[in-house]
Design a protein around this nucleic acid. Structure first.
Lengths: 194, 194
DNA sequence: AAACGATACGGAACATCGTTCCGTTTGCCA
DNA sequence: TGGCAAACGGAACGATGTTCCGTATCGTTT
């Protein structure tokens, strides 16, 4: 808990502004569930009972809104890594379990995995936020597994993006099984027993 | 060469129509190289020196244009499968080699892998075309590898889509290495030697 | 060769996005 | 209560895919 009462070098926001921001977060979360993270801005505005201008004041880029909605889930995914490492039989098991967590998170957020790959500048903050939080997590697990001689070295970023990519289109096609694929990928990482 | 002189249950197209269709194919191919398969329709029209209406007459859905441009490459990729199977030391090697071919094809066509996952109805023909031609190829290789006891069974569609997914965003980020990931995935398919 | 009907053309027009802008409203403090 | 900075709403803009229809062109028929 940061700073109990004295905090405001920032002049303190107006009450209606704060109210609208919360309404927007809830509206966006609902819209994302119904229509995916690419839900039209106007829809979100209507759900929240505000004008579109208000969205852009609170969340200058579309990605900022997405980040705000999923912030907590990304954080808890990242924070799970050390615990998994401590409680799993082997580092490779921990890595597998964490990837499961990550995949579960992504496949339930329609369009999130896709959005991660938009080259549009508006999505750069999203990209950055995910990388900032999740890259350390994979790196931790990967390093441990490599040190244990269980997996061959690989660029953590490539692995993270690869798994993210595998989750694309998961909700659109029921025959497609990203969890299985991610598990196979991690399996393929193992060092060949000589 | 099909039917030398009698062929036309189709009344034979006008010369200008045929000319425009070819111009469009070349213009689209060029635009795809420069801007990816999502190059704006208007750009393609300008390059070809035609109006946008002409595009939609020849290629009712955007996907039809993409299919037309890449038809030959998809076919040769598919046709390579039997030869690889015959000339490789093991079915698993053939599968690996074919996946390499497939990945190389996809990563050099900016945006193609992404387009494969558009849920838009306009892209359904593209999806269908790829599946029609490439699914038999993977299935052949996969079955052979499974029969040889080299790999665990997996839904060929899932594998194909998974590898396709791994190729997304390859050209946008030089640190990302889809070839490596695809190889690891195929590696992960191998049966565990007891 | 001229005329005519079918075919194909071009690009304006429409719908849907994200995003910006600015006149108007509203909360807050003096 | 008055005033002003903060925040608001939604019209307007630009980009995009797609449709539509009046016009031009081709190929054939007279």
């Amino acid at each position: 808990m940061p700073a109990r009462d004295t905090d405001p070098p920032t002049p303190r926001k107006r009450a209606d502004a704060e109210r609208n921001k919360q309404a927007l977060l809830e509206a966006a979360a609902a819209a994302f569930v119904d229509s995916g993270v690419n839900a039209p801005v106007r829809d979100i505005a209507v759900r929240a009972g505000v004008g579109v201008g208000t969205i852009y004041r609170h969340f200058p880029a579309r990605a900022d809104l997405i980040v705000a909605v999923y912030r907590h889930q990304v954080q808890s995914c990242a924070q799970a890594a050390p615990a998994l490492l401590a409680n799993s039989p082997t580092p490779h098991d921990a890595l597998t379990a964490w990837i499961d967590l990550f995949v579960d998170f992504l496949v339930t957020k329609h369009g999130l995995a896709e959005a991660m790959h938009s080259d549009a500048a508006a999505f750069e903050p999203l990209h950055a936020y995910f990388l900032d939080h999740l890259l350390p997590a994979v790196t931790l697990l990967l390093d441990a597994a490599v040190d244990a001689g269980q997996v061959d070295p690989i660029d953590p970023l490539t692995l993270l993006q690869g798994v993210g990519n595998l989750c694309i289109g998961a909700s659109a096609d029921s025959r497609y099984n990203p969890r299985r694929l991610a598990a196979i990928l991690i399996r393929g990482l193992r060092t060949t027993p000589v």
